[in-house]
């Protein structure tokens, strides 16, 4: 196990970094959501971003994907500076993400939603539509194959023609992950992919995340509240609280940090926990 980790670490170092954020600051009115945060994601890594509600995790992701340009600091993606770039340009560089609250397109089938994920690889326009039989059809069918690959990978075969709004929540989350993966991203950001899921569904998603990393060579940034999942699949985590990094490193060690326990449980409860465990949780 340690050998494998060491080997992986070597590979990461030689391959360079996927994401490098330096001194990110972002405020909304008087509220400082992020106070000079530095994070980085290495190639082939599953990087966890955790923290209590309102600690700035989603804001951080929105800074990376271009929704909220940072007030200060720089974002480097694949060694290129993307600070302040518009979200659709960031997506074109090979970044896909899912949302905390589902962001599927209602009124369209599962298949159409997944095909939309291919947008960055297609050349949509009015003329290919007008001359569909001569022009648009070939492209549509070529991308349909890619979409069907992902449908197989995510095991969505029997619901591909259903409208997305009628399928259960757990499957909707899976469709959203499929839509992100079908774009063949190099870097995938998952914002609470397991929120509101039961143990079985969580395990399914965890498996898909690991498979995506191993088979499709994506590096992953994962925001998640389920600590069992985080410790099980993340290689490295950063814990945020009130817009600041309070702990980072190997998952088990980082979430056992007294500061992290305090951030989650409050001071008194944390003191009790630490006392009960003799100072070593």
């Amino acid at each position: 196990m340690r050998d494998q980790n060491a080997k992986q670490n070597d590979a990461m170092r030689s391959d360079g970094r996927i994401l490098e954020c330096r001194g990110i600051e972002r405020s909304f009115g008087g509220l400082k959501a992020l106070k000079s945060v530095d994070i980085h994601v290495d190639r082939g890594e599953i990087f966890g971003l955790v923290g209590p509600n309102g600690s700035g995790k989603t804001t951080m992701v929105n800074v990376v994907t271009g929704f909220y340009p940072p007030n200060a600091g720089s974002v480097q993606l694949f060694g290129q500076d993307i600070t302040g770039m518009k979200p659709n340009r960031v997506a074109r560089m090979g970044v896909a993400r899912t949302f905390q609250n589902l962001a599927l397109f209602r009124g369209m089938s599962v298949l159409d939603n997944i095909l939309l994920g291919r947008h960055v690889h297609m050349k949509p326009g009015a003329l290919p539509s007008l001359f569909y039989w001569l022009w648009g059809a070939r492209e549509e069918i070529a991308h349909r194959r890619a979409a069907e690959d992902i449908i197989d990978f995510m095991q969505l075969q029997d619901i591909r023609d259903e409208p997305v709004e009628v399928i259960p929540m757990g499957l909707q989350k899976r469709v959203e992950l499929a839509r992100a993966l079908v774009a063949e991203p190099r870097f995938l950001i998952l914002d609470e992919p397991m929120a509101g899921m039961n143990q079985e569904e969580k395990e399914y998603i965890a498996r898909f995340i690991l498979d995506a990393r191993d088979e499709r060579n994506v590096s992953i940034l994962l925001i998640e509240h389920h600590m069992d999942v985080v410790t099980a699949i993340c290689d490295r985590i950063v814990v945020l609280s009130y817009g600041e990094i309070i702990a980072q490193g190997e998952p088990k060690a980082a979430i056992a940090d007294p500061q992290v326990i305090t951030a989650y449980l409050g001071e008194r409860a944390a003191a009790r926990v630490l006392q009960a465990n003799g100072g070593a949780p």
Binding site: N88, M122, P124
Partner: peptide, 30 residues
């Protein structure tokens, strides 16, 4: 033309813009 729009990437991109413009942006739709 209108019938074809619905089954091509053009129509899907427009529908994405209509339904959720932030989600459309994140999958690369300008």
């Amino acid at each position: 033309f209108m019938l074809n729009v619905r089954r091509t990437a053009f129509g899907r991109a427009l529908a994405a813009v209509r339904e959720k413009d932030y989600a459309a942006e994140v999958i690369g739709v300008d």
